[in-house]
């Protein structure tokens, strides 16, 4: 991986109480690329993803060692402001979780929190974010309707728009399509492809075909370890590690 990295981890270990959930994970996440994390359920994908914006800080009895660098800054350094970090590294969850507010308010919420007051400016951000998230045409006539009236796929794209509204550098997605039908999934996948022009995307998915379709790089995790990470083409055509090969071809356990 010679492309410039936006996130680099160095020997990251994480424990939930006694449970050693990440073991010496060192990964480079190339900028403006889509990186997929795959691996059996419980292997630590979500945990690793949450490390990138320190969401694990919210969980009790978590201990983390090692280094996580974002743009050459250690995200655990005392000088790092977690709010700013989470603005730079946004997250989209498995189940769409719009606020029970209007479509407009869902997107305007983040910029407001970060101090944008001007109505015209907010309007601009909302429209641009919704356009970026490929949902503008579907909602432009009903921005003041409740977000909860949208379909699951639309809600997920709205959540992506909400993430985009604060102008992040990195977007973390934790199984963003697992509750969506194939058509809504295809829309999100197309969106991911376009997002990488402006952002870096890290996606956790249990769907290997999806990882193969949307990502440039793929990391395979197994029981808390990053077994192998490389170009998606290479991982799915000829992985270096037998463990990866066995997982990808369903010869597991």
């Amino acid at each position: 991986m010679s492309e410039s990295a936006i996130i680099t981890t160095n020997n990251v270990n994480l424990w939930y109480n006694e449970k050693h959930a990440l073991e010496s994970v060192s990964i480079r996440v190339p900028k403006n690329r889509v990186t997929a994390l795959i691996g059996p359920s419980g292997c630590g994908k979500s945990t690793l993803l949450r490390c990138f914006n320190r969401l694990n800080d919210l969980i009790d009895h978590v201990k983390i060692t090692g280094e996580i660098m974002l743009d050459d800054e250690n995200i655990h350094a005392p000088s790092t402001d977690v709010v700013t970090l989470r603005k730079k590294v946004g997250m989209v969850f498995q189940k769409p979780n719009p606020f029970p507010k209007t479509i407009y308010e869902n997107v305007a919420y983040g910029p407001r929190v970060h101090g944008v007051r001007d109505k015209a400016e907010l309007d601009r951000i909302v429209e641009e974010s919704l356009r970026h998230a490929a949902i503008w045409d579907e909602v432009k006539e009903r921005l003041n309707d409740s977000a909860l009236g949208l379909s699951g796929g639309q809600q997920q794209r709205l959540c992506i728009a909400r993430t985009l509204a604060v102008e992040p550098e990195v977007i973390l997605m934790d199984e963003p399509c697992s509750s969506l039908d194939p058509i809504a999934t295809a829309k999100i996948e197309n969106l991911i492809e376009r997002l990488k022009e402006d952002y870096t995307v890290i996606i956790v998915t249990h769907n290997m075909q999806q990882a193969a379709r949307v990502s440039d790089y793929t990391g395979f995790m197994y029981i808390g370890k990053l077994i192998e990470c490389g170009k998606t083409r290479q991982i799915f055509e000829h992985p270096k590690e037998e463990l990866t090969e066995n997982y990808i071809t369903g010869r597991f356990g």
Binding site: M208, A212, F236, E237, H238, P239, T244, I248, T249
Partner: peptide, 9 residues
């Protein structure tokens, strides 16, 4: 089956 890796090969 959308085979991958060794299966595809």
């Amino acid at each position: 089956n959308q085979p991958m890796a060794k299966d595809m090969r």
